[in-house]
Computed example of a mutant assay.
Amino acid sequence: MDKLCGAEIVTGRILRRERERRHAMKEKREKKEENMLSTEQVSYFVDTFTQKRDEIEGALNAADLGEVEKNKLPSHFDKISKDILILQRFTSDSIPYLREYDIRKSQEAIQNLQQKLQELDKRLLPKKKFGFKKKSCDTRKESFLQKIEDTVDSIPVSTLPFKALCGYTENNCGFSGRTEENLSLSDEVICRKDIVLTNLVGCTVKLVGSPSTLHMASLHNCRIMSGPVARSVFIEDCVDCTFILACQQLRIHNTKHCVMYSHVTSRTVIEDSTQLGFAPYSLKYENMEHHFKIAGLDININNWNLVDDFNWLASDKPSPNWHILKADEMKDDWV
C-alpha cells in the first residue's frame, strides 16, 4: 500500500512538472509571436511612411522646379496638404506600437513637409498667402458640421464628407445644436455605437455605457462625461470644456482652455491646441467595471499623462501647450 502511494506521488510530481514545462513553453511561444508581430507592425509603418513621404516630397519638388503649371498650383498644393494630413493621421493611429525614436522622427518629417509646403505657397502664390487651404477647409467643415446636424439622431450619415478619414458610419447617435441642456444616453442606446456631439454650448452630457468611438466638434463651455470608449476619442474645435472619458487613444485638434480627466491605455495626441490640463479619470458609476470589460480596456493601465504634441518637437523641454493639474485643482465628484 505504501509503495502504491509513493508511486502516485511521484507520478503526480512528474505530471505537474510536465504541465509547468508546457505552460512555460506556451508563454515563451506567445511572447515570441507578440514580439514578431510588433516588429512587423513597426516595419510596415516605416516602409509605408517612407513611401508616402517620398511621394509628397516628389510633389513638392515638382512645384519647386516649375514642373506644375501656375494655374494648377492651388489644386496641386491642396492635394499635398491633404496627403500630409493623411500621413499625420496614419502616424497618430500607429503610435501605440511605435518606439519613441520612430514617433519623433516621423513628427519631424511631417513638420518639414508642412514648412516646405508653406514656403512654396508663399513664394509661388504670394497673393493667396496660403489662403486657398483655409477657405477650402472652412467650407468643407461648415458643410460637414451642417450635415451632422441634419443626420444625428435621425437618418444614416452615409453621405457625410470625410467619412473615410474621420470614421463616421451609419452606426451613429448623439446630440447637436443644443444650448444649456442636461443630456444623457444610456448603455442600451450607446453600446458599440459611434457617438457624435457637435455645436453644443453650455451643456452637460453624460454617456453611461461603452460606445465604440466618440467624436466631438465645436463644443463651448460644456462638460462631457463618458464611460469607457472601445477605440478612439476625437476632440476638435472645443473651448472651455471639461472632458471625463476613458478610451484606447485620445486625439485632440485645434482645442484650447480645456481640461481632460482621462483613462488612456495607449497615449494622447494633441495638435494645434493650447492651455490643456490633464488629470486621471475620476468618473464613477454603477457597472463601470463591466463596461471597461466590454470596451476591452484594462482598468489598471492608465497613461493619462503620456501626451504627444505634434506642434512641439523639442525632446529636452516639455510642451507649453499642456500641463498636469495640481492636486488641489483636480475634481472627483461629477454628480
Rank of each mutant, 00 (worst) to 15 (best):
Y44N: 09
Y101Q: 12
Q88D: 14
V68C: 01
R21F: 07
G58W: 10
E30C: 01
E69V: 05
I86Q: 14
I84R: 06
E33Q: 15
K32P: 00
V46N: 15
P74L: 10
S94Y: 08
S94Q: 07
I95Q: 15
V10M: 13
V10T: 10
K26C: 01
G12E: 10
N61K: 12
K26A: 04
R29N: 13
T91G: 08
S94C: 06
R21D: 07
M25V: 02
L37N: 13
T50A: 02
R104H: 13
D54G: 03
S75M: 14
K70Q: 08
F77N: 15
E55K: 14
R89G: 06
E33L: 15
D78C: 07
H23K: 05
D78Q: 07
N35Q: 14
H23G: 00
D93L: 09
R29S: 08
M36V: 12
T48L: 15
E57P: 00
E18V: 01
I80G: 04
T39I: 03
D83Q: 11
I56C: 02
E34M: 02
Y101L: 07
Q51L: 15
E100Q: 11
Y44E: 09
V46Y: 12
H23I: 01
Q41L: 11
K79R: 04
R104V: 04
K26V: 00
K72F: 03
I56A: 06
E100C: 03
F77D: 15
D83N: 12
Q88Y: 11
R13V: 03
D102T: 11
F77V: 13
K70T: 11
K28S: 03
T48A: 12
R21Y: 08
T91H: 14
E100I: 08
R104W: 14
I84L: 12
K26F: 02
F49I: 03
V46L: 15
D47S: 08
Q88F: 13
I80D: 06
R16P: 00
E69G: 09
E57I: 06
V68Y: 01
L85P: 02
R53Y: 08
D47W: 04
Q41S: 09
E57Y: 08
D93A: 12
L37E: 13
L98R: 05
E57Q: 13
E40Y: 11
I103E: 07
T48K: 10
R13Q: 08
D54M: 08
G66T: 12
E34T: 01
I80S: 06
K52Y: 08
Y44T: 04
P74E: 13
M25C: 02
H76N: 10
G58S: 13
I86H: 14
E20T: 00
S43Q: 08
K31A: 05
